[in-house]
Design a protein around this nucleic acid. Structure first.
Lengths: 187, 187
DNA sequence: TTAAACTTTCAGAAATTTCTGAAAGTTTAA
DNA sequence: TTAAACTTTCAGAAATTTCTGAAAGTTTAA
């Protein structure tokens, strides 16, 4: 299978960027190609299109399946396995987000929590623990928030985003409505 | 300089995770150590504490400076350069976020925009362009939204996050207040 | 100017990651 | 059962990244 220049530049770019998202160049290319291809592709299709070995494709598909980004499908009367992405762009973004959280943020939070149990031995450690606490709190805040957003439908999320600068306005309005205590807003 | 076990486990963990945030293991370690150390450290301090060569530290500091995460400071009467992080945990997270956007998302958006200018040559390309458009829109939405959040103070952001599941509620409330068209809320 | 005290650079070594392709394994149909 | 048509595994090769440490460069004080 030959790739059109347009598709090729997309695939190559995601190959380079892919490493940022947690996989290597060829895995990034395989994923990108599957995303922009309507029909499911066999391992041989992928190997040909990307000029990589059959074995490499097998390993890559394994990895993408472990990320829940790719699934196998079959064509009746054909013994080959065909691969395709597991959902819409929105679904894929969500899945990548979840998996990265699971692989990176969760272990970090757990390490921080462990370390925070210790009593500081000296001033130096006390400072370090303070910083670890801050990182812990920030990560927890971010993941909690991200979890909320994931619950929203794409449409609702879009509304929320279009709100843009208005977020802040809505926030203070909410305070007005729900929070009648007369404490001043100064720090 | 000897690292306490607690600090060491933190530094090593961030060394491993660091690669996800865009730098290699030792650069990650250097950054982590600077984050949890109150006083600024010289290049030699870093090399000793982490058991790496002086030259490696020099390169690492260069990279962290290019990310705006580390700055040089001086001690009167001392010729050495001392390094420290550029701000609070919050500031650092913000900076990493901005820099990653600049290095990863912006080039991707620009590539997508270029590719989207072309007319599809066939059904295959039409599908691919559709997907590229979706990715483009998603990235743009996310970055716009993230930009808004960055404008908020940590305190305000925290309030917003604590709102949690309420976001959706606030949203529909906002619709009620500002949007008097009588269309039902059913899908 | 000089030389001491530093930092940076960079060639090549070391470490790590990725990839190939042959061999082994699995599944299906007959 | 067998053998054809596939997929997976994995040892070692290839590619890439990282690191060292000596040499070169820079700055400062006198």
């Amino acid at each position: 299978m030959e790739l059109s220049p347009n598709i090729q530049s997309f695939v190559f770019h995601f190959g380079e960027m892919g490493s940022r998202w947690g996989f290597n160049r060829t895995v990034g290319q395989m994923f990108a190609l599957l995303v922009v291809t309507e029909k499911a592709l066999s391992a041989n299709d992928l190997a040909n299109a990307l000029n990589i070995s059959r074995g490499n494709v097998s390993m890559g598909m394994k990895e993408l399946q472990s990320w829940r980004l790719v699934q196998v499908s079959h064509i009746p009367g054909d013994r080959k396995e065909y691969y395709r992405v597991t959902g819409s762009i929105w679904d894929l973004a969500n899945t990548i987000f979840e998996e990265r959280k699971k692989r990176e943020v969760d272990p970090t939070l757990s390490l921080l929590r462990d370390n925070l149990l210790a009593d500081p031995l000296d001033q130096q450690e006390a400072f370090a623990l303070e910083k670890m606490q801050e990182i812990h709190d920030l990560l927890e805040m971010l993941t909690q928030w991200a979890g909320e957003l994931q619950g929203l439908s794409p449409e609702k999320l879009s509304t929320l985003m279009k709100l843009g600068a208005g977020v802040s306005k809505i926030l203070s309005m909410k305070e007005h409505l729900f929070n009648n205590n007369p404490q001043s807003s100064s720090k």
